[in-house]
Every structure is written in structure tokens, then in C-alpha cells.
Design a protein around this nucleic acid. Structure first.
Lengths: 207, 207
DNA sequence: TTCGTTGTCGAACATGTTGTTCGAGTATGG
DNA sequence: CCATACTCGAACAACATGTTCGACAACGAA
């Protein structure tokens, strides 16, 4: 199923590589299908035998990884401890594992399609993750707003990080996110013991 | 300077209106210059007499407002009280004042160019706004990270808000942003009196 | 190895978009 | 009223897109 004809694998790999390389050079918007064909040295009809258009290629390039990410995120939900804020940590790890593709797709040069995909993915998960806690706390903050806030913050940090060559490391980045996000979130949830959570994480290395 | 020939004003207005309307209908990416021409009922050469291409039109559509926003933001910096987190309030007010254009340019259907413009604008301002405070507090958090976090959060809330027809109102939204942002920010700045700031704002209406 | 299947190639094609040019006409503002 | 400056519309070359087709080569199963 995954590995069909060897030629197909080869072609898709070549096209995908050329695609990522071209995005890093010129940005997604400034690439034509023709450019990809030239770079990959692949026949025109061959491309359209595999992808409907440029956008489909973009989606395909991200699809496998997205599934993997979805898995990572789903696996961490059940426990749902309110002190561990974030699918953000999982997101950062995932990005770090696929640095090259993230750099092309989520960085300065990528289109906004991938960004929207991620936003949906993280946003939906975080919303459902937060809903019971907010309800229990009797908060008057709409869960949509809270989810949107932390999703955007995480994705913003992600793109900043991608554009800065993934330094500091994923663990440090997750720590920083945690430190900035936790106080507000715990406040919204009506917890009083903010200081504890903050100091629990403040001792971690940051650079 | 601003108001030249009456015909020019008329043409630009018609083109701009058609542009905004079409974005709301189909989204920025799915519009061609030809579509704009047809909708506006304007000659092809006339369009290119005023705009280099579609992207230039997008920029132009946002330019005046952006200057206004820049002014609003610059006007609020000097005081720089660390308890008032945000250029975010000014941003929300500005968006509310120009609802129609924001809906086309910053909403679901807009391109990501406007988003980047805003991100730069807010991000730069917030970074310089925060730098001295973070330095004074001796924080180990990079100012870039902190600025990115709150800029993205604000813009995320903005786009969510735009796509939800600007409800709740700008003041309520600013309150919510404040409540989510202030605790983490004050913690990062080493302030201990978080509870005070939170309760100062919690009594405000949210719906 | 053989052989049917399947992917690739390359050229050609219709279609649509882009940005430019030009001459003729018309509204504008001084 | 008149010179200026804008608009129009058509035509144009350049390029991108997505499809089609026949010829050929690589694949993998027997």
C-alpha cells in the first residue's frame, strides 16, 4: 500500500525534494509547477499522474507527518493533567524531528496552508482539552478564546523557532512556552498555586 | 497630494470595493486581476496604470489603515507602564473601526501578506516595548520569544474575532486578552503581585 | 526468463492569466 | 475654453496550466 512501484516512489521522492528545495530558495508562492519539473527533471505528464496541482503536492508533502503528529497529540490527551499545558511540547518535538520539511513548509517561505492545517489540528485538540477544565472552574472566558490564544502563541513560537534554525532546542523552547503560558492558563482555571508551577519550571536551562 | 484627479479617486475606490467584495466571496488566492476588472467594470490598462499587480493592490488597500494603526501604537508607547500589556487593545480598536476591510484582509479569506505586515508591526513594537522591562527584571527569557508569544496570541485572537463577526466587542476582547496575557508576562518580569492585576480586570463584563 | 502491467517520457494542444502598448475618445480643473 | 491627464478597448507576446497520446522502458509476478 505504502510502497508501490519502485518508480513511483522514486518519482515522488525526487519531486518532493525539488519542491522543498525550491520553497527554501524562492518561497512557495513564487514557484511554478514548471520550476519543479525542471528541477526534478521529470516529465510534465508524470507530475500530473501523481498530483492534481501544486497545492496537492504541498498537502502530500505534509500529510504523513501530520498523521504522525496527530498520533503524538492524541496519545497525550487521555491523562489530561491541567498543569501540563500543552500539546505544544509534542508539536515542537515533531517539528524538530522533521526540521527540513518544517523549515520549508512552516517557515518564512512556506504558504499559509500548512499553517492553517496546524492551527486546526492544535486548536481543535486544545479546545477539547480545555473545555472540561474551564467548565469545572466556572470560568466566564469562552473556551474558543482561550484555545485560540494558546494555539496561536504556540504556532507563533514555532514559526519563529523554525526561522531561527531551531535554536534553542525543543526542550528549552517548550520550557519557555510553559513559563509564559502556564500562569495565565492556571489563573483562568482559577488555580491559586501559580508560584509553585512557575518555580517548578524556572530552574530548567533556557539557552 | 492625497486627492488628485476625481477620476483617479473614483477608479481606485471602485477597484478597491470590488477587490474586498471578491475576497469575501472567494478568498484572495482564488481571485484574478481579470475578475476584479470584470466586477469593477474597469479597463485592463486602467488597472495597471495604478497598481503593479494584485499584490500591490492588496498592500495599497491596507496601507492607509496601517499608517493609522502605526500612529495609534506609537502614541501609546511613551508611557510604557508594564501592567498595561498590550498594543493589542489598540489593534482591536483599529480592527473594529475598519471592520469591513479587516474581514476581507485578515479573516479566513485573506492572504497571509497582511498577516505578516501586522506581525512585523506589532512584533517590533512589542519587542522594543518589552526589552527594557525584561532587562531590568534580569529575566533569562529572550525578548524575541516573549514578544513573539504575545504578538502571535494577539493576532490569533484578532483573526478568530474577525471571523466571528467582531463579537464580543473590542473592549471585551481586550479584557480577555489582558486576563490571559498579564499573569505570564508579569511572572516573566518577576512581579509578585499577580493576583491584584488579575482581579483588577476580572470584574469586567465578558459577554 | 518471459510477459502482461504500469509508470515515464516528450511533444503537442487548448485554455486562461499576465502585464504592456497604443491610439482614440472624454472628463477634469485651471 | 483648452491643455492635461485619465480611461477605454483591443491586440499582443509570454508564460503557466492541465490534458492527451503514442512510444518506450522498467517493474514484478509466474
Amino acid at each position: 500500500m505504502a510502497g508501490q512501484d519502485r518508480r513511483v516512489r522514486r518519482t515522488k521522492r525526487i519531486i518532493g525534494d525539488a519542491f522543498v528545495a525550491l520553497i527554501l530558495e524562492r518561497g512557495y508562492d513564487r514557484i511554478t509547477v514548471q520550476d519543479i519539473l525542471d528541477r526534478a527533471d521529470v516529465g510534465r505528464s508524470t507530475f500530473y499522474a501523481h498530483y492534481r496541482d501544486k497545492e496537492a503536492l504541498l498537502t502530500a508533502a505534509f500529510d504523513d507527518m501530520r498523521e504522525e503528529l496527530r498520533g503524538d497529540l492524541a496519545a497525550m490527551t487521555p491523562g489530561a493533567p491541567p498543569d501540563r499545558t500543552s500539546p505544544a511540547g509534542a508539536l515542537f518535538d515533531h517539528a524538530y524531528r522533521h526540521r527540513d520539511v518544517y523549515q520549508a513548509l512552516c517557515g518564512r517561505h512556506g504558504g499559509n496552508l500548512v499553517y492553517r492545517h496546524l492551527r486546526h489540528l492544535i486548536g481543535d485538540l486544545l479546545r477539547e482539552h480545555l473545555r472540561p477544565h474551564l467548565a469545572a472552574a466556572g470560568s466566564d472566558l469562552p473556551v474558543d478564546v482561550v484555545a485560540e490564544f494558546y494555539t496561536s502563541a504556540a504556532l507563533g513560537l514555532l514559526t519563529w523557532w523554525v526561522d531561527h534554525d531551531f535554536r534553542p532546542g525543543p526542550t528549552q523552547l517548550a520550557h519557555m512556552y510553559q513559563r509564559l503560558a502556564a500562569p495565565g492558563l492556571l489563573t483562568a482555571l482559577g488555580h491559586g498555586d501559580i508560584a509553585a508551577v512557575i518555580h517548578e519550571r524556572t530552574d530548567a536551562p533556557t539557552r
